[in-house]
């Protein structure tokens, strides 16, 4: 039995005007949320393993309480158990602390053979949580995975896209892989899965459920990086659209392309 843990995060769906122009502060509230699209690929990878071998798939997420909805959604895809690390004291976590918290949560539940992460989140967008999580767990991590073959109870063959080359490895569990979207296009949840997910509950965990109960190791308190300021990027947005047809439009485009 291969025990798999998938790390998934709920992220804000993009919306326009998500920053207060005057204060420069984010307008968090009222933002629609979605499952980080890259983590649907991580889930897809896990489900494929489950189809080929004898495996269980659990989902871990750190986030606000309403991220339950995301885990319920994951149930509809065929996930066995979902764990939500939610505690106001987790807020403001950087890479070091996010990965630490996930490690604490994972260790509190089971000894997993395989941890699967997405390539990146669309809000944190660092691609750094997964290697850090592997390090905390004392595991090797394999990034940029685009293909899984020869899945067995002890390991499998993976193809990693490392930019300039593709590396093919025979790896053993326990380990952590992070997958690219390429090769793991998410499926749709089944109707049956949707119905069944309605009755499944999400396991919530707070600091009190973790082995390390020291609040100073979590959230903003434990974080080593801090945001000093935020400001709007230089935007070209202010460019006013010109109404141009035919040759006028063509000439405008060409002169724009040819300048510098």
């Amino acid at each position: 039995m291969i025990k798999i843990a998938v790390c998934m995060k709920q992220v804000p769906a993009y919306s326009e005007g998500d920053m207060d122009e005057k204060t420069g502060l984010m307008k968090r509230s009222g933002l629609e949320t979605i499952t980080n699209p890259y983590d649907l690929s991580a889930l897809e990878a896990a489900l494929r393993i489950k189809e080929e071998a004898n495996a269980t798939v659990d989902v871990f997420s750190m986030g606000p309480e309403n991220a339950e909805a995301m885990i319920k959604d994951a149930y509809a895809y065929g996930v066995d158990k979902g764990y939500l690390l939610t505690d106001s004291r987790f807020g403001g976590a950087d890479v070091l602390v996010t990965s630490y918290t996930l490690m604490q949560g994972i260790l509190a539940v089971n000894k997993y053979d395989l941890i699967i992460c997405g390539k990146q989140t669309t809000d944190g967008d660092t691609s750094q949580v997964s290697p850090a999580l592997a390090k905390w767990l004392g595991l090797p991590n394999y990034q940029g995975v685009i293909k899984l073959l020869e899945i067995s109870n002890d390991g499998m063959e993976i193809h990693q896209d490392l930019g300039e080359f593709i590396q093919v490895l025979k790896i053993n569990y326990p380990c952590l892989i992070s997958v690219n979207r390429e090769g793991f296009v998410p499926r749709m949840p089944s109707f049956k899965g949707r119905l069944e997910s309605k009755n499944k509950s999400v396991n919530e965990m707070s600091i009190d459920n973790l082995e390390d109960g020291d609040v100073n190791h979590y959230g903003i308190k434990g974080s080593t990086t801090k945001v000093k300021k935020i400001f709007p990027p230089k935007r070209t947005q202010a460019v006013e659209a010109q109404v141009l047809e035919g040759m006028d439009g063509a000439m405008e485009i060409l002169s724009f392309l040819r300048k510098d």
Binding site: D94, V95, L96, S99, D125, T126, S127, Q128, V129, P131, A132, A134, K135, W136, N141, Q143, G144, L162, S223, T224, T225
Partner: peptide, 17 residues
């Protein structure tokens, strides 16, 4: 980016991507 944050954890420090 496949190992920057491993170093960060080893050194108990931050990483900015």
């Amino acid at each position: 980016s496949g190992f920057a944050s491993r170093i960060a954890v080893a050194m108990k420090t931050g990483v900015t991507a």
